[in-house]
Amino acid sequence: MFTSGRPKAVLHLTDSEHRMLVKLAEDRHAPRNVALRCRIVLTCAQGVTNREVARQIGVNETTVGKWRAQFVQKGIAGLYGPSPPNRGGRPKPELSLSEDERLRLEQIKKLGPPSAALLSEVLLASASGLTNREIARANGLAEHTVGRWRARFLAKRFLCFGLTSPRATHEHDEW
């Protein structure tokens, strides 16, 4: 039978790999992303195309190709941790601070009320190149909250970031 497109990575599972993948795919306490990756690999091992695996599982065909190749290269350990390089997603504009903004944020971080200090810490960390996820985990915030604060800062710059707390206003009001 003739197949078109790039050749896919050949995927063969040992009995122990198959058992481990099934266990992880069905484990309610396993991280969801790891369970999904295990289901992708298990379906790929049945010999079907990436397109068919994507259709069956409900993911993008590119995602199937990434995790097939990652498993072939690194085995089950490759299914843990971050996505392989060139992960998609919307690019985030760079957050760069002027020296005045950086000094003002440092001052608010040290002397301002706790909520303004937290906002300052988030913005400084974002300007240092950390991801929204890393900042959120370090500060006990939701990832989307970090992204929202960052976006508002980029949109309005320093005008809205005096000592006013974003938590002090109503959730849907602009601050």
Results as ranks from 00 to 15, higher is better:
residue 150 R to V: 07
residue 127 A to V: 02
residue 1 M to W: 04
residue 5 G to S: 03
residue 114 P to E: 12
residue 31 P to N: 12
residue 158 F to Q: 13
residue 92 K to C: 04
residue 92 K to N: 12
residue 146 V to G: 04
residue 15 D to C: 07
residue 117 A to T: 03
residue 57 I to Y: 05
residue 66 K to M: 11
residue 30 A to E: 15
residue 165 S to F: 06
residue 116 A to N: 07
residue 152 R to A: 12
residue 123 L to E: 01
residue 54 A to F: 01
residue 76 I to T: 11
residue 69 A to Q: 08
residue 64 V to N: 04
residue 116 A to F: 04
residue 154 L to W: 01
residue 160 C to E: 15
residue 125 A to P: 00
residue 4 S to C: 07
residue 90 R to K: 14
residue 63 T to M: 12
residue 174 E to N: 13
residue 45 A to S: 14
residue 54 A to L: 02
residue 129 G to D: 10
residue 141 L to A: 06
residue 153 F to N: 00
residue 173 D to N: 04
residue 63 T to V: 11
residue 96 S to F: 09
residue 100 D to T: 15
residue 174 E to L: 14
residue 35 A to E: 04
residue 170 H to R: 13
residue 135 I to D: 02
residue 48 V to T: 13
residue 135 I to P: 00
residue 119 L to T: 15
residue 53 V to Q: 09
residue 161 F to R: 01
residue 66 K to Y: 14
residue 87 R to C: 09
residue 39 R to M: 07
residue 45 A to R: 00
residue 126 S to Y: 05
residue 54 A to N: 03
residue 84 P to Y: 10
residue 132 N to D: 15
residue 164 T to F: 09
residue 60 N to A: 15
residue 115 S to I: 09
residue 8 K to N: 10
residue 103 L to K: 08
residue 92 K to D: 07
residue 107 Q to T: 08
residue 48 V to R: 11
residue 108 I to R: 08
residue 32 R to N: 11
residue 33 N to K: 12
residue 28 R to N: 09
residue 96 S to Q: 12
residue 72 V to R: 06
residue 146 V to H: 04
residue 171 E to H: 04
residue 150 R to Q: 10
residue 5 G to W: 01
residue 166 P to W: 10
residue 117 A to D: 04
residue 7 P to I: 09
residue 48 V to E: 12
residue 136 A to M: 04
residue 138 A to Q: 14
residue 114 P to S: 09
residue 7 P to A: 12
residue 84 P to S: 10
